[in-house]
Amino acid sequence: MGSVRTNRYSIVSSEEDGMKLATMAVANGFGNGKSKVHTRQQCRSRFVKKDGHCNVQFINVGEKGQRYLADIFTTCVDIRWRWMLVIFCLAFVLSWLFFGCVFWLIALLHGDLDTDYKDDDDKSKVSKACVSEVNSFTAAFLFSIETQTTIGYGFRCVTDECPIAVFMVVFQSIVGCIIDAFIIGAVMAKMAKPKKRNETLVFSHNAVIAMRDGKLCLMWRVGNLRKSHLVEAHVRAQLLKSRITSEGEYIPLDQIDINVGFDSGIDRIFLVSPITIVHEIDEDSPLYDLSKQDIDNADFEIVVILEGMVEATAMTTQCRSSYLANEILWGHRYEPVLFEEKHYYKVDYSRFHKTYEVPNTPLCSARDLAEKKYILSNANSFCYENEVALTSKEEEEDSENGVPESTSTDSPPGIDLHNQASVPLEPRPLRRESEIGSRR
């Protein structure tokens, strides 16, 4: 089982795998120059863009038009607004034209077009017409509009002379109601789609790998820009990579689940303020055997998904993003964004995407760390350097704002901070800030 798991979770494809794949392509008759073999020097295209759209195009789909027309309502909801407006206008105009032609044909076959009612006051002739005051196609078209929109100006009306005319008036009224219901329903469904809710759900630009509770963890940050909550919010993550099976089958995008606390339930989050999602790199993680150097040379993509129900409509929305291997910062942490004021908490989104480097973060893999092949620094050293990194950030910001350097908390000259780390230190809580992250 261990060997199978290692093969499945191998992220960085070796040169031997690339040569094996190329040999397979030639042997199977696919070596026509169009096949692409992804190596370390040639990274694959992003499968999920940063804005959440999937970078996929469908080609050679059989009976595409028929399949889309069979699900016309979903098609109308998914198309762009400009095409929705075109369909909206065409549906009414074509129905008016169709029934206008029908009423014109009825008048033509009944002989109503030969009668001039402007110079004739004989009401008996008017009563013999199928539709009064309809003696041309324009008049028939206007009567069709008046019937379907129930305008009723009063000059044109159907008589009991022709039952077919009466039937067409009733039929057009029913068709008009159906068109109204369909168009209004599609427009309302399109307006109520929770897709735009994703514009106020954000992911951090970069993911980070750092120590948390004595273990290497992959972390990324999510935030909600609205005050309205995302009900039943939960997160998922998958690692996408290519691999070759033991039988020699090439899988271009193998999807591997990344555990973010599904078993323990901590994948469900209360997204009021930005939260750091934590994936513990343990023996079940696809990143277990990867060191910093392996991450730098790897070719994979981590897709992160945030799902929840919109509070206003109770409709489920899904926000997506992805991180390539070069977008994962090893040995970094996110800057705090949640600050405790006197009577409330304040979230500073200008710090949302910012990170700071944490010294002495192990550069080895989580496996080597678990097997004690890498000796961690003293816990006080880690905490102290973590505090120094934050303090230096604040000093830089104070210097930019014009604060005198004498007010900063610099260490005395001639003292090495790293050498001082081995000395037991008193706890130094942050002056006014605390970061709330997901705790395992």
Rank of each mutant, 00 (worst) to 15 (best):
A207H: 03
I179R: 03
A192T: 11
N326W: 03
W96L: 15
D410L: 07
D78Y: 05
I151E: 03
T159I: 02
A421E: 14
M219E: 13
L306Y: 08
D282E: 08
K215G: 08
R333K: 12
C157E: 05
A25G: 12
T200S: 14
E385I: 05
I281N: 01
P412M: 11
L253P: 15
R8S: 14
G414Q: 14
M191Q: 04
E405R: 09
F167V: 13
S422N: 13
W220T: 08
V208M: 01
A107L: 05
H234Q: 09
R431N: 15
D294H: 06
D254F: 06
L369P: 01
F137Y: 14
R431G: 10
E371V: 08
I72A: 12
F58G: 12
S132I: 10
R67C: 10
R197E: 15
I87C: 15
Y345I: 11
V231R: 09
I251L: 12
A192E: 09
A189K: 15
M19H: 08
Y323D: 02
F137K: 03
R44L: 06
I269F: 09
V131Q: 01
P362E: 01
L69P: 10
S321V: 13
F88C: 11
L218M: 12
F98H: 00
K215H: 11
T75I: 06
D289S: 12
L425C: 13
R221Q: 14
E16I: 04
V77K: 13
G18L: 03
C43M: 11
L225V: 13
A325I: 02
I436G: 14
A366F: 00
C54M: 10
T149R: 08
P362W: 03
R82H: 03
G414C: 05
V93D: 01
S406N: 11
H205E: 15
D17S: 07
A22N: 10
M315W: 08
K118I: 04
D213S: 13
E161I: 01
R432N: 15
M191I: 04
Q255R: 08
S13E: 12
I151D: 03
K393L: 10
R351D: 04
S136T: 07
S132T: 14
R367C: 02
I415D: 15
K215P: 00
D180L: 14
S228K: 12
A70H: 08
Q41D: 14
R197C: 14
I79L: 10
K393V: 08
D257G: 08
T75G: 07
I269Q: 11
W104F: 05
Q42H: 04
S136D: 11
S127I: 15
W104E: 02
C177L: 13
E385L: 07
V86Y: 03
V170A: 03
F73H: 15
H353F: 06
Y250N: 15
S144G: 03
L109C: 13
T6C: 06
W104P: 00
Q318C: 11
L94P: 00
D119F: 11
F99D: 00
M188T: 15
S350F: 05
I72C: 14
V202R: 12
E396W: 05
S204R: 00
G223N: 06
E340M: 10
Q318D: 06
L94V: 11
G31C: 07
E400P: 12
K292A: 13
V102T: 08
L306E: 00
Q172M: 11
H53V: 08
G414R: 10
Q57N: 13
I151H: 08
G265H: 10
A312K: 07
H332F: 10
E357P: 08
F88M: 13
K50P: 08
K195S: 07
G402H: 09
A129I: 04
A91S: 08
S242T: 13
V423F: 05
L216P: 09
L225Y: 10
F203M: 08
S3G: 06
L287T: 01
K346D: 03
V310T: 14
D296H: 10
R67L: 05
V134P: 01
H53A: 13
M191S: 04
K118F: 03
S264A: 11
F167Q: 02
P336A: 15
R432P: 14
D51H: 11
S399Q: 09
R367T: 01
T115V: 12
T355G: 02
I277H: 01
F47V: 11
A379M: 08
M191W: 09
L376C: 13
D160T: 07
Y374Q: 15
F92L: 14
G402A: 12
D294N: 04
S228F: 04
V235Q: 00
H279I: 00
K128F: 11
I183P: 08
N360F: 08
A370G: 03
C101W: 03
E426K: 03
S95A: 15
F30C: 15
V169E: 02
T407S: 10
V187M: 04
Q148R: 03
S406W: 09
S365F: 01
P413A: 12
F143A: 03
D410Y: 03
L287M: 07
D299S: 06
L240Y: 07
G308P: 07
V158M: 07
T313E: 12
D289I: 07
K49N: 07
L290S: 07
P336S: 15
L240T: 08
L290Y: 10
K190A: 08
D348T: 02
N32H: 08
N326S: 09
G100V: 00
K34H: 11
T245G: 15
R268H: 14
F182H: 07
S13V: 07
K227R: 06
K215M: 12
N259F: 05
F98Y: 01
S408W: 07
E435I: 05
R351L: 15
I415C: 15
V175I: 12
V310N: 12
D180E: 06
E396K: 08
